[in-house]
Design a protein around this nucleic acid. Structure first.
Lengths: 148, 148
DNA sequence: GCAATGTACTTGCATATGCAAGCAATATGC
DNA sequence: GCATATTGCTTGCATATGCAAGTACATTGC
């Protein structure tokens, strides 16, 4: 039982590393973005008003606040996100998706979908996929920022 | 169908990030190792003669060769791995697990198993776990260096 | 046998990231 | 209301990592 938990955890992490390695090449060449940058944009896309505070982004991406600060800077420079302050709380500095950023994330989603298709290309039935989807959902259902 | 592939890929990557974040704290405090270092040791543990060349390690870990070179250095310094050359091919520089390294990896496996138990702690039946195990296995079955 | 090519590893440089400290604004206790 | 604590963000420093170039060795083609 516990060994099965270990097996599953190892397989999950190894699968993720493998998939991430495949994705990173594509995003870099097609969109000039890293996998993590695409995830940041996806989080903003699904957020109300297409914006999130930096700490909220950090929590959802499982990175530190400083990482979000530093990831946002170049994304601002290329115009896909902007900085927005809150009227009530001057500490808050939202990261908000721009029009251009919304386009970018739609393009990235196409690439992502295509690559995701390759990952499961062989011998995966609709039923298999739904089964996996359901099981994985249980791992992230309670966490904030589920992108699915 | 393709959307299901995307959903699964997103969920897989998000689950992995979440789990990795949980693990990293534990390995650091309990063993003084990073998650990636533990994976390196696990790869060596399961390899014939408990050793692998640096490029082989790089492939299995989905990192660059230079990363392996640099990861091995501090691990050598603390004595858990050693460098070993090949008689036939002087280019090869194996990373080999020492006795101390073997102990370390057994300890780390205990921690890993415990944390893996927490990940699946609630409402996961034996059958659920076996189902997930089987599905994830198909994602990494063909890749070299499956740790399970 | 030797030149050309390929492979294994290392290193310099650039980027990415976490932690701890610092700063500014808000919230809390009294 | 004011001192203290907390929160959100940024920055300095250390570590981690990839890419490209360099080095040493092996393999191939002739």
């Amino acid at each position: 039982m516990n060994d099965l938990c270990l097996t599953n955890t190892l397989r999950l992490l190894q699968s993720a590393d493998q998939i991430k390695a495949r994705l990173s090449g594509d995003f870099a060449s097609v969109h000039g973005l890293s996998v993590n940058e695409v995830f940041l944009l996806l989080h903003l896309e699904q957020a109300p008003l297409h914006r999130l505070s930096r700490v909220e982004l950090a929590k959802r991406m499982h990175v530190s606040a400083s990482t979000v600060t530093r990831m946002a800077a170049p994304l601002e420079k290329i115009g896909v996100v902007a900085r927005q302050t809150d009227e009530r709380d001057a500490r808050l500095a939202f990261v908000v998706l721009t029009e251009s950023g919304l386009e970018k994330v739609h393009e990235a989603r196409v690439t992502f979908t295509k690559q995701a298709g390759y990952v499961f290309r062989d011998r995966w039935t609709q039923e298999d996929l739904e089964q996996l989807s359901g099981l994985l959902h249980r791992l992230i259902a309670d966490a904030p920022g589920n992108l699915t």
